[in-house]
Each structure stands twice: as structure tokens, then as C-alpha cells.
Design a binder for these strands. Structure first.
Lengths: 140, 140
DNA sequence: TTCCTTAATAATAATCATTCCGATTACGAA
DNA sequence: TTCGTAATCGGAATGATTATTATTAAGGAA
């Protein structure tokens, strides 16, 4: 959110948040809050789920992490790297990054024809992943 | 979801569901479940919120309605018409349909480079709507 | 029309991801 | 090292959605 950069908020550092970010950077599975909690719990036995959520929102505010809401009942998170889109399996809910190319024509098109101040876009592709395709055949 | 068409489920008709669909077709605001509840409650004083949710899922199953999950804490719904995308205001959460053109290049590109069985895609544009742009200036 | 089977409804409880709160801990400036 | 306060922990609160159960009403058959 560009319009918040003017009021830069300073956050005190914490080991929990440092490790949370490292964990997010080290995986590609787009974890849920509870997955992150389970993994860091081993390292911080007193860890609280509230700490996960609060730090995720701090990291999002810092632009280091982004939230993905993909029609499931719970949010997923990922460390922000390069812009990319998502392949979402409508069977099992799995989300896969789709780096591939950015489509520049979309940006031009959209800016021309709306009075929104567009910050970006995300393409979610819906379909059935390889594993679920196999399962479909088996179920007959 | 194409893979469900083979087992066609028959639903008994109901006045509540009939009116729910009519209401969804008559508006462009992408209502929440509780908005739909509040409106139909006038017509059906005994209406239950569970009835809204159950009928929404039936209408979705019938392909007449689709659910939009746009990073808010609650779902929004719309009657399915032609394929289109969404402009989502990151300030106020408003969602606006963006008919405009379909981008055929995306389909070709994606089908070539993944083993997903792609059913479709949706582009969510994030930005700040005209009204919220005005409010921003005022806050200084 | 009347009856009968069963899906749809209403009311309410349960679920569960997320947020909030009060007491305690620990970062980091002086 | 001290001190002010942000970060943490634990648990309770919130709120959207789902499940449960008794009641109502589609809609097909007689």
C-alpha cells in the first residue's frame, strides 16, 4: 500500500518474527497461520497463535509478506518475492506459484478504462492439479 | 465445475430460493450473505440465515451464482452472467465488475505451460476507487 | 383433491479462523 | 544498568459459516 509509506512505522525486532519470516521464505507451500504455528512451536514452546497473526500483519505492513485469500475458509501467506500468479486446485485447495510472464497488455488496458487507482492485479487460475486428475479416474 | 455435470442433482423448488436468485440478479453490489438475509427478511419474516447459505450453495452448484472471496473476512456473491473480472478497492472493500475484454493470450499461455486442467481464470485488480481517492486528499 | 414421502425451512447450537485483552517479558535508547 | 514501552503469552471474545433437529411444504401417485 503505497499511501502508507509516508508515515513510516518502526517495529521493534523480535526473534519470533525473524524466524517467522525465515520460515516463510524457506517454503513454497503458501502456509496457513496454523501451519506456521505448528512449525515454530518446536522452536518456541510458549509460542502463541496470536503472535503468529500479529507478526504476519506486521510483515504484511512492511511489504515483506502477502496474504492470499483463495476461496478456502482460511488464509494463506507467502513471502513476497517477484510478482506472480497462482494455480489453485478446485479439488484439494492446493496453491502453486505460476511465475511465467507478466502480461503487460493487461496493465495498459485496465488503466485506460477505469477511474480506479490501480495498484496491481492478480490472476488466479482455477483447475484440477495432476494428482487430483489421477484420483478422478480411480473413483469410477 | 465441469466434472460434476455427470451426476445431475435435482432440487425441489422453493419460494425462498427463487426470490434469492431474483434478488441477486437485480443488484450489482456483490452482496454478502447477511445483506441478502436482511433484504429477504422483509418478505419472509421467518427467514433463517442458514437458508441463505444453503440456497447460495445450491445456486452455486447449479452454476447460477458464484462466490467471490476478496480478502475480506466474509464472502460475497453474485449471479453468474458473462465472464468478467473484478476491481477491488483496497480501502473500502467495494467490488466492481469489469466486463471489458477477455484476454485470450492468457488462456493459450497457461494451457501450454502447466499440467493443471484449467477450468478458467479470474483477474482481480486491486486499487483505490474514486470515492476513496477523494477521501485521501481530505485527510491531510 | 387427498395422501405420502421427503426435501426445504426455521431456530439454534457448534465450529473454527481470526482478533482482542490483560498481565508479563524483553528490546533498545539514554 | 535503568526505564519506557513494544512484543509476547494465554485465554477469552468475535463473527462468518456449517451442522443439527423438529417442523413445514413441494410435488408425485392414487
Amino acid at each position: 500500500m503505497n499511501h502508507q509509506e509516508s508515515s513510516v512505522k518502526h517495529y521493534r525486532s523480535s526473534r519470533q518474527r525473524k524466524r517467522l519470516l525465515e520460515l516463510l521464505c524457506s517454503t513454497e507451500i503458501h502456509p496457513t497461520a496454523s501451519w506456521l504455528y505448528d512449525h515454530l512451536k518446536k522452536e518456541f514452546p510458549n509460542l502463541s497463535l496470536g503472535t503468529i497473526y500479529r507478526n504476519l500483519s506486521i510483515l504484511i505492513d512492511q511489504g515483506l509478506v502477502q496474504k492470499i485469500s483463495a476461496s478456502s475458509s482460511f488464509d494463506r501467506f507467502e513471502a513476497k518475492t517477484t510478482p506472480h500468479h497462482h494455480l489453485i486446485c478446485t479439488k484439494c485447495g492446493k496453491i502453486i506459484d505460476f511465475e511465467e510472464k507478466v502480461f503487460p497488455a493487461i496493465n495498459e488496458e485496465i488503466r485506460r478504462s477505469t477511474d480506479f487507482d490501480i495498484e496491481g492485479y492478480r490472476i488466479d487460475f482455477f483447475g484440477i492439479c495432476r494428482e487430483c486428475q489421477k484420483k478422478q479416474y480411480k473413483s469410477y
